[in-house]
């Protein structure tokens, strides 16, 4: 069987879409200085929210519930990190564990012990007239579910917003030098809280995309580490909106390669290709750390003189 390059790219973009949603959420959180390991939790919460919402009110309600559920997970994170001043790494791990446990418990409680396969309506790809006929990239970029197009808009707006607006500047200042930001009249606590909530909503939408645009049902733990992959994508994308898009595509393509090899019948160990983006992320980090694309205050708690 031969492989159609256009088809491969289309599948890569489809796989990359939920990753990119989560990664843009993580990008904003990290630009404010917080590494949000609770993103995986927001994503599974969003997936479960999408199931419940879509069951009650259709696809639109599903996405709304997904974003809300992701926000709820992020709110716990914000509360613990910003108000209780706990370590973000520990808090994020706890939030993820909590969300995985809660969604699993609720799913089995609401839909039966075996978690009978439950299917929800999904959104089909919608081709953009004209553009989808472009050679090679046409179907990849312009024959996707609506959420992918929404993603393009969000990515462009986010890039502009972070670089060109006062609020974007406040975000970056908080991630670079919270004390200086505070002195300039910005509230780093408030900035980080909003950044985490936005990140949670995006993580929730990522879960929603998984359920409502791809799988069509919920399974326990279906986020399967994608929230953590988003963190790798942000690093590989050098904390820029454009870079994140490229890195998400790379991760999407790497996970599609296994199907290419399988259908070609090549005995290539596809796991090595799956591992490759992570190794690449580490190499990029090692090679460019000194040039400091990372926010200077990334992973540091707010000190007393910054709140």
């Amino acid at each position: 069987m031969s492989i159609d390059a256009g088809e491969f790219l289309q599948a890569s973009v489809r796989t990359a879409t939920p990753l990119a949603f989560a990664a843009y959420g993580e990008l904003v959180a990290e630009r404010s200085g917080v590494i949000n390991l609770g993103l995986e939790g927001a994503m599974i919460a969003g997936a479960f929210g999408a199931l419940v919402g879509a069951g009650a009110g259709g696809v639109g309600a599903g996405f709304a519930a997904a974003a809300l559920a992701g926000c709820a997970a992020a709110a716990v994170m914000a509360l613990v990190v910003l108000w209780l001043r706990a370590d973000a790494v520990i808090a994020g791990t706890a939030v993820t564990l909590l969300a995985l446990g809660l969604t699993g418990t609720l799913y089995r409680a609401l839909y039966g012990a075996q978690g009978a396969a439950l299917s929800v309506p999904t959104i089909a790809p919608a081709a953009v007239p004209g553009l989808s006929h472009l050679p090679l990239i046409g179907r990849a970029l312009f024959e996707q579910p609506m959420m992918t197009y929404l993603l393009y808009v969000v990515a462009a707006l986010l890039g502009w917003w972070m670089a060109r607006t006062h609020a974007g500047l406040a975000l970056r200042a908080t991630g670079e030098r919270p004390v200086a930001a505070f002195a300039a009249g910005i509230s780093p606590v408030r900035v980080r809280a909003w950044a985490l909530l936005f990140g949670g909503a995006m993580g929730g939408l990522a879960g929603g995309v998984l359920v409502l645009a791809q799988v069509g049902t919920f399974a326990e733990g279906m986020s399967a580490g994608r929230g953590f992959i988003a963190i790798a994508i942000v690093v590989l994308g050098r904390w820029s909106a454009l870079g994140v898009a490229g890195a998400a595509l790379l991760f999407g393509a790497a996970s599609q390669l296994q199907y290419v090899f399988q259908s070609l019948g090549w005995p290539v160990p596809y796991q090595l290709f799956l591992a490759l983006p992570y190794v690449l992320t580490l190499l990029v980090l090692a090679g460019t750390q000194r040039r400091a694309a990372a926010p200077a205050a990334l992973g540091t708690a707010l000190t007393e003189d910054a709140r």
Partner: peptide, 14 residues
């Protein structure tokens, strides 16, 4: 290289 261990250890898990 000053790579944050939070990120590197997470990558190495995968």
């Amino acid at each position: 290289f000053g790579v944050l261990e939070v990120i590197s250890t997470l990558m190495l898990n995968f």
